[in-house]
């Protein structure tokens, strides 16, 4: 608990910043929705004239409905971006930052195993993702009432949990890279690069056959691909995501337990 609180305390400023950003984004998007809804007919015509490719890339479907609007404006990119940024950052900081700043020399010579240290840091990161998902749900559940946007709470929960799942996946990747290499920049850069590549492949998959073929192994397909605001949580993909995240976390624990800590 001591290390968990310390880890959370180390991140609280940036976490608070991201949370405020998320709330602002939710607020702004919801405030625009009444205009979108009132212009539904015109917008529908306008969007019908959009190039098919663009509609597929941005997965614009039933844009003027609550689910369609929030899916396009929040859940297809902006919210995942926040979840992934926090996840990758916390993962890179978990051990690599301690090593680079050489605070690991004291932390890892305390009577606590490396596995336990890293497990606590992973737990803290997962809690952070779940809490952010809760903030997302709460803000939307409250917010949609003010703008008369129709969307079931279970669908909002599904969307938020999907975002958290993406955050956890890329947290696991960054944690693994940091634990294996001890370099924060590589851990953060590697996880973010993977996320960008995954997102691009996912977005362009409807247009490019090669990308379409690798879609089943793309984390964005496991999460956003199931269209949680329309269909709720896809249990199979969720389990797959958790298994992959667990594999990265497990690998991180194994390599970190055995590796020399750099001076």
């Amino acid at each position: 608990m001591v290390l968990l609180l310390k880890t959370a305390g180390d991140h609280w400023r940036s976490y608070a910043g991201w949370t405020i950003g998320l709330l602002a984004m939710v607020g702004i998007q919801l405030s625009v929705y009444p205009t979108v809804r009132s212009s539904a007919a015109g917008l529908a015509t306008f969007l019908d004239n959009y190039p098919e490719a663009l509609k597929q890339i941005f997965r614009m479907e039933d844009y003027t409905s609550g689910a369609g609007y929030l899916s396009t404006e929040l859940f297809s990119m902006m919210l995942p971006l926040i979840f992934i940024s926090i996840g990758a950052s916390w993962g890179a900081n978990a051990t690599a930052q301690e090593e680079e700043r050489r605070t690991a020399d004291i932390l890892l010579t305390l009577p606590i195993s490396r596995v336990r240290v890293l497990s606590i840091k992973i737990t803290t990161a997962i809690i952070a993702q779940v809490l952010l998902a809760a903030v997302t749900v709460l803000s939307l559940v409250i917010g949609i009432g003010f703008v008369d946007l129709t969307l079931g709470t279970t669908k909002i929960v599904a969307g938020a949990l999907t975002g958290a799942l993406l955050g956890i996946l890329f947290n696991a990747v960054a944690t693994f890279l940091g634990a294996a290499l001890g370099k924060r920049s590589i851990a953060l850069g590697g996880a973010i690069a993977l996320a960008i590549a995954g997102f691009l492949f996912f977005s362009l998959a409807p247009l490019v056959d090669t990308f379409e073929r690798i879609t089943p192994i793309n984390p964005f397909q496991w999460t956003l691909g199931s269209r949680p605001l329309f269909n709720g949580i896809d249990v199979g993909y969720t389990i797959l995501s958790l298994v992959v995240a667990s594999a990265f976390y497990g690998a991180a624990l194994v390599v970190f337990k055995r590796r020399d800590i750099q001076a």
Binding site: I106, T109, I112
Partner: peptide
């Protein structure tokens, strides 16, 4: 059983880094 052993050790690294 290194973590139990470390309870009995005091270690000061060279050029120690603190939080």
């Amino acid at each position: 059983n290194a973590s139990a052993l470390r309870a009995k050790i005091g270690y000061l690294p060279g050029a120690p880094a603190l939080y």
